[in-house]
Design a protein around this nucleic acid. Structure first.
Lengths: 159, 159
DNA sequence: AAAAAGGTTGACGTATACGTAAACGGTAAC
DNA sequence: GTTACCGTTTACGTATACGTCAACCTTTTT
């Protein structure tokens, strides 16, 4: 499995799929600035080829985790903590136990969030169908109305 | 229903349950500063009694919504928008339609978030049981270890 | 050789969501 | 009356997460 590769590495070949910073930025719809920032904050540590950063599958996976974490409201510091713990916890029992306690904490947090989410979704859907009912009633009554499907009908007498 | 109340209002009685800013802050575990800030940002508009703010059931409900929204990652600006739309949408079809489109957008956002959440929870639980297995294996092997249940076992040779 | 298209490191700017302190007003208790 | 406690406004400070230049390399294309 880990025997030396009998091939001559051609230039950019580091023995696996790699990505430039621009490719990742495009793929995930973020800026290169953001990706470098995550590195500054200790969340990524890509290889270097000359002065350029080279991202591998693991880096890409972490970036994915970062973005998902962000959507869930985790701060970059929290995620760095998590990554560090994960990296360090491969052995000693104390580390493992601490890691477990952190995981439980995060779990509780996510469960609370799921609760919030379900509640909000329900209210949102109630609001939605209530609105649709109102609309239907209106449309049956006043057929003389023009102007439909306007995108942003805020105030019309502005400066 | 809306006939004038035949009672003389006694001092603080505004005809319903009311709260001071301090009460709300304590109840929700936030600072009064935060509550005033939400008002500055147009998310709350309590009555005034003299110079003091007086919060009613509706204000409290909104505060609850604000805090839940925050836990879900909504910005204050987004929530103010939502409140304004809700308040304005009680009538005209155009407003209602716009409101509906916004609701759909939010719904999509929340569904994505639920997806993220479920994925994260699953990975977290896998990580959890993997860790526990590691621990059990270790404990069966090395019984000579001391020091258990340490809370934060980070590096010990710091400055 | 010159331009275009990527990459690099600073360094400063910005929006959000408050924290913190100052300086003041009202009122209830001692 | 003064201490304590609650409230008020004004204003500056701060952490997070980048955006936005600037000024500079490479490498490739023309």
């Amino acid at each position: 499995m880990t025997h030396p590769q009998p091939f001559v590495l051609r230039d950019n070949d580091t023995g696996g799929t790699t990505y430039t910073i621009g490719e990742l930025a495009r793929e995930f719809g973020i800026t290169t600035r953001a990706i470098r920032f995550y590195e500054d904050e200790g969340l990524l540590s890509p290889q270097r080829v000359g002065s350029k950063r080279l991202y591998r599958r693991r880096d890409r996976a972490r970036l994915k985790l970062i973005l998902r974490g962000k959507r869930l409201g985790f701060t970059l510091a929290e995620m760095r903590e998590a990554f560090e713990l994960y990296d360090e916890a491969h052995g000693e029992a104390r580390q493992l136990k601490y890691y477990l306690s952190v995981l439980e904490e995060k779990r509780a947090q996510l469960l609370q969030q799921r609760q919030d989410l379900e509640e909000t979704l329900e209210e949102l859907e109630q609001s939605y169908s209530h609105c649709r009912q109102l609309l239907e009633t209106q449309e049956r009554q006043g057929k003389a109305t023009e102007e439909k499907d306007l995108p942003a009908p805020r105030s019309s007498t502005g400066t």
